[in-house]
Simulated scan of single mutants.
Amino acid sequence: MNTSTMLRAFCDAVEQRNSKAFAELFTEDGVYHDVFYGAFAGRAKIAGMIDDWFYRTATDFRWDMHDPVSDGETLYARYTFSYRSTLPEAQGARAMFEGVAIMRLRDGKIVEYHEVANTAPAFADLKFAPERIAKIVAKQGAALKARPEMKRHLE
């Protein structure tokens, strides 16, 4: 499967709540590192992430990947991602995120997915209190700092 086809299948599976098709894009030992929810290892956990986490408090997902670049082992793509929140305080608002997807590949499948996203504006869209946004962003910053590959950039 070529890069564009794989990325469209990735986005379509989330938009269509097709957790099985989404998980099949990963190797058996694949890991999805979500910017909010953490790591999901293995196809069963990755599939569960779609139903148990993504769709728990959201609906009407839209995900598009832009300007992909790959050497066959690593794939980078800018993305736009949005959903309609079902959280009471959001009052049905749509949250939109921009980010970069980073995927390690093996034999045409995703071994590891990471993302870097600008999350604070979306939380404002959802009408979260400033204190709640600050707490979420601080937690994400701490998780980023904990990643070994980030150490030299933070010194």
Rank of each mutant, 00 (worst) to 15 (best):
V14F: 13
E149G: 02
Y113G: 07
Y79Q: 08
A95W: 01
A138W: 06
D125F: 03
R56L: 12
D29Q: 11
H153T: 10
F81M: 08
K151R: 01
T80Q: 10
F54E: 03
M6P: 12
G48H: 02
E112G: 00
A39Q: 04
D71N: 14
M103G: 07
M96I: 12
Q16R: 13
F97I: 12
K139F: 08
N2S: 09
R94W: 05
A44E: 11
A117M: 14
N118S: 14
A90G: 09
G99L: 06
N2F: 03
F81Y: 15
M1K: 10
R43D: 01
Y113H: 15
A9K: 13
H66N: 09
A101R: 05
G72K: 01
L126S: 06
M103N: 14
F22V: 06
I133H: 07
A124G: 14
G72V: 06
R56S: 10
K20F: 09
R132Y: 10
M65N: 14
A58C: 07
V31T: 14
L105G: 02
Y76I: 13
N18D: 15
N2K: 07
A77C: 13
Y113E: 13
F54W: 13
G42A: 04
P130L: 12
N18P: 04
G92C: 04
M1R: 13
F97Y: 14
P88H: 01
A146L: 03
L105W: 08
R78Q: 09
N2Y: 05
A21I: 07
E24D: 15
F61P: 01
V31W: 02
G30W: 03
A13V: 11
E28F: 04
F128N: 02
G108V: 03
A134F: 03
T119W: 08
